[in-house]
């Protein structure tokens, strides 16, 4: 038996759990759709007032941009940083540590199964929004193909860095403040609030140096056709780099965290 069958079993279990919570799933989904919708309406209004465009974006491109942002963010986001504090406090982690399996696998599987289910709702929402806002779909096959690895890697960049961040719960019980900082950075520098191209150059540089651009903006820019082939390859390489950094962070922070956990009382 290998990791593959463990993942299949974990997917089945977590999917069964998620099917139990239809209402909370719908609330989460509404939370996912509303922010891009608001930004889209705001930017469209700004664009219309400014003669039909802001920077290189016209109203239809804003629509396409935010619809892709919504889908990418949905596929890539993780929530475990909100859970670890509880897991440690309530002894849930002890249960996970007694199993002959690293707890990260259960979290990846849970994340994937949630995405598999909710994507069934997000895609129709995206289609509806593109009809309502007359989105401009002009995606080349090459970009669509490049989008796939970029999207998968965007997920892992978020997952590993987010999971390493969740480990802060081993050291502090005030993890929410840290989480808010992280998400504030993400809001501005990942392209969620505004396309990075519309930000001041200094912020654009900050976004590219930080992992945030590679979590959302990069696959979105890629699919929109805003990147040259060379930029795409560089972007993919940067994502690989951030995944490597994330994995190392997970490994070391986890090890140190467990050492602390087992020293101070599990």
């Amino acid at each position: 038996m290998n990791l593959g069958s463990i993942y299949r079993a974990q997917l089945k279990t977590t999917m069964a759990v998620q099917l139990q919570y239809r209402v909370s799933a719908i609330i989460w989904l509404i939370g996912l759709v509303i922010p891009p919708l608001v930004y889209l309406v705001v930017w469209r209004t700004v664009a219309e007032a400014g003669g039909g465009s802001v920077g290189s974006y016209d109203t239809a491109e804003f629509a396409t941009y935010y619809i892709i942002v919504m889908v990418v963010n949905h596929l890539a986001f993780i929530w475990h940083m909100w859970e670890y504090d509880y897991r440690i406090r309530e002894g849930v982690l002890s249960g996970l540590l007694l199993r002959p399996l690293h707890p990260i696998h259960a979290d990846i599987a849970e994340n994937l199964s949630y995405k598999a289910l909710t994507t069934l709702v997000v895609i129709p929402a995206a289609i509806l929004m593109s009809v309502l806002f007359k989105a401009d779909w002009n995606v080349s096959l090459t970009n669509a193909l490049f989008f796939i690895p970029a999207m998968i890697m965007a997920f892992f960049v978020q997952f590993f860095l987010g999971w390493a961040l969740a480990m802060a719960a081993f050291w502090t019980t005030r993890i929410n403040a840290i989480n808010r900082m992280y998400f504030l950075g993400k809001l501005f520098l990942s392209g969620q609030m505004a396309p990075l191209a519309l930000l001041p150059p200094a912020l654009q540089t900050a976004a590219s140096i930080s992992p945030y651009r590679w979590m959302i903006s990069f696959p979105v820019e890629l699919l929109l056709g805003n990147l040259m082939l060379r930029e795409i390859w560089i972007g993919l390489a940067v994502q690989v780099l951030w995944i490597g950094i994330g994995l190392l962070a997970v490994k070391f922070v986890w090890r140190a965290g467990i050492r602390r956990y087992s020293a101070f009382g599990a």
Binding site: M1, S5, I6, R8, A9, Q10, K12, T13, A16, V17, Q20, Y21, G91, S94, G95, L98, R99, P100, L101
Partner: peptide, 30 residues
């Protein structure tokens, strides 16, 4: 870990929202 178990009175290993048999199946694979 495959050879031991720890049962603690008020802790739960079973997934709360689904029947125990589903948790057992996961356990089997792990």
């Amino acid at each position: 870990l495959r050879q031991i178990t720890l049962v603690m009175g008020q802790r739960n290993q079973l997934v709360w929202d689904i029947p125990a048999i589903d948790s057992y199946e996961l356990h089997r694979v792990i």
